[in-house]
């Protein structure tokens, strides 16, 4: 079951990501990104991280991407012209991406024992309440980073307000 879900939604995520690059119209690209985020949410859920899945859907696909689509609609952005891109992108880009992929998978495969696994995801069948676990970790061990992040976001909001306010 988990394998089937992984194959379907992993494939969907990759297809969405490739479609995002190939589409000419910004709104189609934005919608492909939504597909990627939703498939990631399903993958999180199949690993047992329900809260993360719900947060992914609500925050990324439900709020951030809606704003993307909203802005594209508001500006009425037209189709973009595809250039062939510089040669440097072809020479450095594809090997670079492949190298990063190889390094990351090598590290995760060899060092997986040392990295340890987080205890945040129960299994699909078990009724472990991982929201309680996440919140206890978030408000005890990781309290400082959590609060610093929230202040960072607050600063960003204030910056946006300052930028958006018209000069008198």
């Amino acid at each position: 079951m988990q394998l089937a879900l992984f194959l379907i939604f992993g494939g969907l995520a990759i297809a969405g990501a490739i479609n995002l690059l190939l589409q000419k119209h910004p709104i189609n690209s934005a919608l492909s990104l939504v597909v990627v985020m939703m498939s990631l949410a399903v993958l999180y859920w199949s690993l047992g991280a329900e809260f993360l899945a719900a947060a992914q859907v609500i925050v990324y696909s439900g709020a951030i991407m809606v704003l993307f689509v909203f802005v594209i609609m508001l500006l009425n952005a037209g189709e973009e012209e595809h250039t062939h891109g510089s040669r440097a992108a072809y020479i450095a880009g594809f090997p670079g991406a492949a190298a990063i992929f190889c390094v990351l998978s090598f590290v995760f495969l060899t060092e997986s024992k040392h990295l340890g696994s987080a205890n945040l995801g129960g299994q699909l069948s078990q009724a472990s309440n991982n929201i309680a676990e996440i919140s206890s970790v978030l408000f005890t061990k990781l309290l400082l980073p959590f609060e610093v992040t929230s202040i960072l976001i607050l600063v960003a909001i204030l910056g946006a307000v300052v930028l958006a306010r018209k000069e008198q």
Binding site: A54, V57, I58, G62, I131
Partner: peptide
């Protein structure tokens, strides 16, 4: 387990 969040998430996709 997260029924309420599911409802909220689906509502936000409905936009």
């Amino acid at each position: 387990n997260i029924g309420l969040l599911v409802v909220l998430g689906i509502t936000s996709i409905g936009v």
